[in-house]
Design a protein around this nucleic acid. Sequence first.
DNA 1: CTAACTACCTGAACGC
DNA 2: TGCGTTCAGGTAGTTA
Length: 277
Amino acid sequence: MVPELPEVESVRRQLGPRLEHRRVRSVWTDPQSRFAEVGSVVGRRLGALRRRGKYLLVRLEGDGGFRELVMHLGMTGSFRFRDDPAGWIPDAYVRATFVLEDPDGGRCVLDFRDVRRFGRLAVVPEGEYGGIPTLAKLGPEPLSEDFDPDRFHAALATTRMPVKPFLLTQRPVAGVGNIYADEALWRACINPHARRVGRARARVLWAAIRDVLAEAIDREGTTFRDYRMVNGASGRFADFLAAYGQHGRPCLRCGTAMARVVLAGRGTTYCPRCQRR
DNA sequence: CTAACTACCTGAACGC
DNA sequence: TGCGTTCAGGTAGTTA
């Protein structure tokens, strides 16, 4: 449901080729959604669509210094092309619409739809994320070489927060949200309340994060409720969840009933036997 | 500076 | 059937 790194990466792969090198002809934004500054993308040519954590970034090519369009799907954000063969009728939840023109003059219409309005669209000078604090302090990309097991262990040692809420801050690693935090901790047999994670267990968690995110990207993410691909399809990782949403079901490793608690205000599912404190 | 708390937002699910 | 309440949760802003 919730767009985390695998979901955002899947969106990036589908959306990117259809944005790059196109020029923005016009933009409409929902006045209630505080996206007014996005109007400044009109006339700009779009560079490659990149991703950092759960953020999508597009360089805006134009006069003077480069600026950047920063997009976050929040809880329920999605992009759809209105010329989609499956048909896409804009509804009350479309918060922004981009009319794009390709170099041959062909036009297409891209809608940003977001029921709960947690999504964000912003335009900033390229790389200047001071107004987007989570992006400014974002940890390393988990599937890049910047994500190093020893540095991850060191990062975990800098806080006294329980490990799961700390993962959700996006500081030790980028892009892990509630679903994949529960999955990675289950795989690593680490209790979500743990306040100290030793070097060896940090390495296991490091590997678990990389593995679960890579597997979820292979299946185009998890669709729990709202999340959809740009083409409207659902992600196929939901059937492979071992922890998230599985409370009451037997643990896939030991058969003990999975437990659910609220930790730092977030629903948290774990195996009380495999993931002992 | 860190960490804890709350607001934001709305449909779905739930309870009586 | 209908109405009110609770839940979901990523991020940002505020407070201690």
